[in-house]
């Protein structure tokens, strides 16, 4: 079961503000889902390798050479990259001061 303090701790990690009235339902709903997912605790998984690329680990297709050469290439023009930003200043993204 997840309690109020744990919900607030996780919300802080997730950078998510919760209104007072959202906290209790969140605790209840997370607890209910966790009760279901914790069923995987029943399984004996000693020595089982975790999956990374699901197809690569189960077929003969080669995914080991997926990296491209580390060479410079063109990227988004600055004005295009900034065009959708909520606030810009001097050719950069504008954000509130971390310690206002």
């Amino acid at each position: 079961m997840i309690g109020r303090d744990e919900v607030l701790h996780v919300a802080r990690l997730a950078r998510l503000a919760l209104a007072e009235e959202e906290i209790e339902p969140m605790a209840r709903e997370l607890s209910a889902v966790l009760e279901h997912v914790e069923r995987i605790g029943e399984l004996d998984l000693d020595g089982v390798q975790p999956t990374s690329h699901v197809v690569a680990s189960s077929s003969k297709v080669d995914v080991t050479r997926a990296l491209r050469p580390d060479e410079p290439r063109p990227c988004l023009p600055r004005e295009v990259a900034l065009a959708q930003a909520p606030a810009v200043s001097d050719g950069g993204f504008l954000v509130p001061s971390p310690q206002a």
Partner: peptide
Amino acid sequence: TDLLDMYTRTRHDGFGREVKRRIMLGTY
């Protein structure tokens, strides 16, 4: 307001209920 406040309020206002639930579950 400061930067952290901007992040947390934006994410509170922008995400719907199921998305918030999954972000919380995944973060946990």
